[in-house]
Design a protein around this nucleic acid. Structure first.
Lengths: 220, 220
DNA sequence: GACTGTGAAGTAGTTCACAGCA
DNA sequence: TGCTGTGAACTACTTCACAGTC
């Protein structure tokens, strides 16, 4: 296996941390801050400073030796991880959840670019929105092709989630954020899925709390 | 380090997978299915069958050698990971998102037990709900103590998320699911937080897609 | 002088491969 | 025969520690 290629393969957990760091940097930039240190980033992200330095070192071009210039670091991350390449997303399911998470100045505000919404209920399409275009499901392929969308968000009920995921993939979508309360698994290594699975989160917390208590009891 | 204690410490990723598996088993049980094999679970969860077998083997009591009896496996997981211990949660922020994710027969339905909702806007409390009790923020400690709640969900805007998290922890909450678009970090090893950070998910997908494309181009 | 950058060392998690069981 | 269960081997990730930089 070659190791000295221009662009090394970054470990997945590092990608996840850097992706989160990017959003953090955007916020700090908006607050007017200009420099930041690895120790500070670590505190904000809840990981040790050496992990941050290591993650940034995978990018092979960041530092000046004394802290990071926020705008610069942000741009390097975006360029290296390809954020600028795939900005556009579409959402399928314009029910209450779909509406909440895509409303500008709403809960998740304008942090990402959802350019098209789909629903098979014509009533939901008819309402219209002034910040994104709404279409019936029949237009899925046409719009995804035209807008070159690579990311899809699923906010349809459980019963149709799997079907919608397949449709999105058939239309060329390469990344899916699934909010429906069912796990979607993808047997293709070229399509990535992030399941936002709240019932699971709930159980994970119960388990972590119990484990912690057991560990305490065992005296370790 | 002792290795042969009754209840071994399970790796965190395994806890996460088992917690998710539990929800999956609940669904399968509801569909009337009674047996399942590791290969099948693996396919549904998107991980290899040996990972599943290994995860289950940490529980030290599951198998009969030929598939898993769903109800039995479910109960073993719940018992081992302590799901039955901490069932109750509360939610802070009864805005649109908070309402959507806690409405029964709504998007996330009745898969978890949110027993109390809090908001500092009296209008939102006044509306009332027939499936959970609503309170002003001033009742936080009282209700959490009385109901022995250990898990809190945060659906307040960015600006007050950090403050609410601290209040929850002061009231004895040990696990937090944070939906607000800001990372909350906790410097205590006895409190766990799961950040549902959608802008981050979006970036993660962009990055994974780009990485994949780079890997392909490099010919690996 | 204080911080970063990064090979090397260490640790945690995953995969293998096969023995054991129904 | 077909599946699970699990130490052992392996791989991936994290942490260390210190040389390099401003």
């Amino acid at each position: 296996m070659k190791k000295d290629m221009d662009r090394m393969i970054i470990p997945k957990p590092a990608i996840v941390r850097l992706s989160t760091l990017y959003v953090l940097l955007e916020n700090l930039e908006a607050e007017g801050k200009s420099m930041i240190y690895s120790a500070e980033i670590g505190k904000l992200l809840g990981v040790p400073s050496h992990t941050i330095r290591k993650d940034i070192s995978f990018l092979r071009q960041a530092g000046t030796g004394n802290g990071y210039e926020i705008t610069n670091l942000k741009n390097i991350i975006a360029e290296y991880l390809g954020f600028n390449k795939y900005k556009k997303a579409c959402i399928v399911g314009m029910g209450r959840l779909g509406t909440v998470i895509t409303t500008k100045n709403g809960f998740y505000s304008n942090q990402y670019a959802v350019v098209a919404g789909f629903d098979n209920n014509p009533e939901k399409i008819k309402k219209g929105r002034n910040d994104m275009d709404l279409y019936p499901m029949s237009k899925l392929k046409e719009v995804i092709d035209r807008e070159q969308i690579k990311i899809g968000i699923i906010t349809v009920p459980q019963s149709s989630a799997r079907k919608v995921a397949n449709e999105l993939i058939d239309c060329g979508i390469k990344g899916i954020i699934n909010f429906s309360p069912v796990l979607i698994e993808i047997n293709r290594e070229d399509v990535f899925i992030r399941n936002i699975f709240i019932a699971g989160e709930f159980n994970i917390l119960s388990a972590l709390i119990s484990q912690y208590e057991n560990k305490q009891t065992l005296g370790e």
